[in-house]
Design a protein around this nucleic acid. Structure first.
Length: 271
DNA sequence: GGCTGGCCCTGTACGC
DNA sequence: TGCGTACAGGGCCAGC
């Protein structure tokens, strides 16, 4: 599932191929949830940014196209030499044809992805984006800030991380990895400042590994060139339930937290 | 305003 | 072999 490293990898690949391009044609899957993309016809892409797991393409008419890849969403740029995208293609949800003959395609098997076109910066229709926490690599983000954010709620720390409010861009994989690395139980409800600092360091380390290796591919994720990531070989906790903890040898366990599968070490991550 | 639980989706794995 | 069921999970929303 695309989290911050995967979305940022895709952004870096797409930006030089779509910025400056004008949309000459656009079409979408019949489902109304993808229809907003049609409003981009005639617009020119001015920039491509990322906030958390959201991609934001600035348009020259003062609006922006917002894309969330959900669980299985993929974006790719196809050249004029490729077969033009059509609604016949399986799982194709939206496609844009540019003035140079290239095309941007959005495929999404499970249809958890989202598209929106809004006035630039007006995110009221996307509540999670509107209330998104700071970027984890923001140099002004300090442990005390994360500590205050976590202390403002009594929900489990993993639930809070997945809410995107204490910090942006963390999903199930990197949350499990960071909590294991920091030795914090996923359902802990109060963290000291020092443990918040350990968590922030661990989050940054997990996300940096994902970024460096082009993302984590467990099943569906591909970058904009169709390549899998390489970070899955570096995972030390997520998906390893029943296997020995790489730190203490205790068998890792799995449970549901906030409805999400969660792997943790009962010894290293005591409550 | 905070929190919980249900819903959206479809491919895959598994049991019968 | 074929069918039915459970499961995976990010974000949104209704209800408390």
């Amino acid at each position: 599932m695309p989290e911050l490293p995967e979305v940022e990898t895709i952004r870096r690949q797409l930006a030089p191929r779509v910025v400056g391009r004008t949309v000459v044609d656009v079409d979408t899957h019949p489902s109304p949830k993808f229809a907003p993309a049609r409003a981009t016809r005639g617009a020119t892409v001015t920039d491509l940014r990322r906030r958390g797991k959201y991609l934001l393409a600035g348009l020259d008419d003062g609006r922006e196209l917002i894309v969330h890849l959900g669980m299985t969403g993929r974006l790719a740029v196809e050249t004029p030499a490729d077969d033009p995208p059509t609604g016949e293609r399986p799982h194709l949800r939206a496609w844009w044809r540019f003035d140079d003959g290239s095309a941007l395609t959005f495929t999404d098997i499970r249809r958890f992805g989202r598209l929106a076109v809004v006035p630039r910066g007006d995110h009221r229709r996307l509540p999670t984006l509107a209330r998104l926490g700071p970027e984890p690599f923001d140099p002004t983000l300090e442990a005390a800030t994360l500590h205050r954010a976590l202390a403002s709620s009594r929900r489990a720390v993993k639930t809070q991380l997945l809410s995107q409010r204490p910090v942006a861009g963390v999903g199930n994989i990197y949350a499990d990895e960071a909590l294991w690395d920091a030795g914090i139980n996923p359902v802990a409800r109060r963290l000291s400042v020092s443990r918040s600092a350990r968590l922030l360091d661990a989050l940054r380390a997990a996300l940096a590994s994902g970024l460096r290796l082009g993302g984590t591919t467990l099943r569906d994720y591909r970058d904009a060139d169709g390549h899998t990531g390489r970070n899955q070989d570096e995972l030390r906790c997520y998906g390893r339930a029943g296997q020995p903890c790489l730190r203490c040898g205790t068998l890792l366990r799995r449970r549901l937290v906030d409805g999400r599968g969660t792997t943790w070490c009962p010894r290293c991550q005591r409550r």
